[in-house]
């Protein structure tokens, strides 16, 4: 019993300590985003890595999500004789909910995991220590471009996801199942308002911070992992943890922000 309590206390202390470190990490990253010297090239490189290179997977996922929504929506709405509302149903589901969440989950899998592995390897091979010893702030040099790039890339990727998804729904609903083309788009035009788009943008910006924060933070504190952050296995474990934690955080935060904004 005493052992159990000791372990419980130890666990609690470890997690509180780790959460505190991640909090300080986020604070230092965000305060260093606008610290000089300003270098645009690393930001563009990161936009290319996080944004442009994720485009294919986002378009692919968006298209199939829209197609499934078109299919499911059509058969559900037909029961009430409201097939004409298919356009609004697809667009609202995508813009308010599925677009930001699925985009963030795909970016976590593709770019977040790579960010964690990159920073983790830099930590293990003393590259981050070397930066600190050269009086180069790793938060400004390594993290700030990733945060800025994610700020730009996530809303843009989400927009691509939404547009492609709407056309995926159009393809199935209008071209395959025979919903009226005018009704599909006019219903969407009437029902989608600025607040819906605003909610999608706010969500994607929040997810951008969550992804880079958790994935980069897990890599940055790899050496403090209790399960041993050393070697290739340590990096792979941290990367898996980062993707899982980041995905869960995206879903929890999605609920919270929806509740706040509704």
């Amino acid at each position: 019993m005493e052992n159990f309590c000791e372990r419980l206390g130890e666990n609690a202390l470890y997690h509180i300590n780790y959460a505190g470190r991640l909090g300080i990490f986020l604070f230092l990253c965000l305060t260093n985003i606008l610290a000089p010297p300003y270098k645009i090239r690393p930001v563009i490189q990161q936009i290319h890595f996080i944004g442009a290179k994720s485009l294919f997977v986002i378009v692919f996922t968006g298209a199939f999500t829209g197609m499934v929504l078109g299919l499911q929506g059509y058969y559900s709405l037909r029961q009430f004789g409201s097939e004409s509302a298919l356009g609004s149903a697809v667009a609202l589901s995508l813009i308010r909910e599925l677009g930001p969440v699925l985009t963030a989950l795909m970016v976590t899998g593709r770019a977040g995991s790579a960010i964690c592995a990159e920073i983790g390897i830099m930590r293990n091979s003393e590259q981050i220590d070397a930066l600190e010893c050269m009086a180069i702030d790793p938060y400004r040099f390594l993290m700030a471009p990733k945060f800025l790039a994610a700020f730009f890339a996530l809303p843009l990727l989400t927009s691509f996801f939404d547009v492609v998804g709407i056309f995926g729904g159009f393809l199935i609903g209008v071209k395959l199942l025979g919903v009226n083309e005018g009704a599909y788009f006019s219903g969407m035009y009437k029902s989608v308002v600025w607040d819906d788009i605003y909610m999608g943008i706010v969500k994607s910006l929040c997810f951008a911070v969550l992804i880079v924060w958790i994935c980069a933070g897990k890599g940055f504190y790899l050496h403090l992992e209790r399960s041993g952050g050393f070697g290739a296995e340590g990096v792979s474990r941290a990367t898996t943890n980062a993707v899982v934690l980041s995905s869960v955080a995206i879903l929890v935060w999605d609920y919270l922000i929806t509740a706040i904004l509704l």
């Binding site: 390897i121 830099m122 091979s125 220590d129 009086a135 180069i136």
Partner: peptide
């Protein structure tokens, strides 16, 4: 005021040799 050589050299492995040596000059 420091100059540090780490045991494993700790060069940034995603940039070239030139960029590694130029890094302190470019940043500081």
């Amino acid at each position: 005021r420091f100059g540090v050589l780490f045991q494993g050299a700790a060069l940034l492995d995603s940039i070239t040799v030139f960029d590694n040596v130029a890094l302190p000059l470019r940043e500081r």
